[in-house]
Design a protein around this nucleic acid. Structure first.
Lengths: 203, 203
DNA sequence: TGTAATATACACAGACCTGTGTACTATGCA
DNA sequence: TGCATAGTACACAGGTCTGTGTATATTACA
């Protein structure tokens, strides 16, 4: 009957509802949508908080590294962002939302959110070092600010193209660091526009 | 007895609690903390949604314009941000938080949040035009992304100094637009450090 | 003083929330 | 076949929430 194990179906449903509706969504709803009794859910996750933490942890994924030049990989990241913003269910950054929703500053969600943000920054930093940037530490943080700013702006404006503005700003910063030589290269072709299958990776 | 009119005390308390705890805080709590009966609250604001909208509208304030050179005014804005981040009750951007919390995309909060973000961007744009930037429209958006990114990062990292990273990025962008001539000028002195009286203006 | 507006205390309806208890059923395995 | 594991259905406790109803008190003003 049920092709996937119960705990996985619970997590998938929790992901969809927590991200789409916020962590205020009720446990009853999650169980019902997952096609599972509430009792079973509580047997797998002893409290709602446990489920929230599992949901966030599941979103901690690696960013795919290619063999393109460092600056190009960084700029490509903003293209991925734009696709994520254009996705129908886009609702901002899951981690930032969780931190904002859960008022308790000692909640485990805070540490996971920090971990996620640091992961992306370290990914930037490694690429910047590879490209020979003078201050990878500082520049990686600046690039991360552009990413987070684009996420917030895309949420408020409901406009995916803010990712392009972030990308242009990133290009200027990379140019100033000596990582990009060519001029803006015109708006880089109207984009291949492959629609995202399910969920783009922005957290 | 009560020095201020009731409706104002309600709004002040709502501001404090909605911002500090999120809009999930109960109406009972707001009434109790404001020292008024719940019935009176509902006489002034016929629903909680009305109160939320009034709370957000109250945060729509102008940004103080000085007579400093445009680029300097923009960079000073990031210093204000850093002070806001260092404030004890800092919990991110009230508007972004509200949009993230209220799942309904047609909620009035969305329009108010957009209005607030656009206001700051237009303030940037006017200054950029004054300074003769080649693309005020695009650059103003890029600067706004840095602001919003700094807010999100300050919230997650609990570190006010991200504002400084945003400021440095902004300086590079302004330099590339020909608005700032001098080199980084060293970390600009350790900052006068006047503690914010009550609530810094970040929304 | 009298009258009208405004505030209060307090109970309540109806809904939803998390988490538990309990008895029943299906399934895999020896 | 027997038995443990895992899932289901369903009620319930105890709490919170928004919003209303009602009867009483305070205040402003003519």
């Amino acid at each position: 009957m049920s092709r996937k194990p119960a705990s996985e179906r619970i997590l998938e449903t929790a992901d969809r509802l927590f991200y789409g509706q916020g962590t205020v969504i009720g446990v009853d709803t999650i169980a019902a949508e997952a096609g599972i009794s509430k009792r079973t859910l509580y047997n797998h996750y002893p409290s709602k908080d446990t489920l929230i933490v599992a949901y966030l942890q599941r979103r901690l994924r690696e960013i795919p590294t290619t063999d393109a030049p460092p600056a190009q990989q960084i700029l490509d990241d903003f293209d991925r962002l734009e696709r994520a913003f254009g996705w129908d269910g886009f609702r901002g950054c899951a981690f930032v939302n969780a931190v904002a929703e859960l008022k308790d500053p000692r909640h485990a969600a805070n540490a996971i959110a920090l971990q996620f943000k640091e992961r992306r920054r370290q990914w930037f930093r490694a690429l910047l070092e590879l490209g020979g940037a003078p201050d990878p530490e500082g520049l990686s943080l600046q690039l991360l600010l552009l990413v987070d700013g684009a996420i917030a702006a895309a949420l408020v404006r409901k406009d995916p193209t803010v990712a392009r503005a972030a990308k242009e700003a990133a290009r200027v910063l990379l140019q100033a660091a000596g990582l990009v030589a060519h001029a803006p290269t015109a708006p880089s072709a109207p984009k291949p526009a492959d629609p995202p299958a399910s969920r783009p990776p922005l957290g």
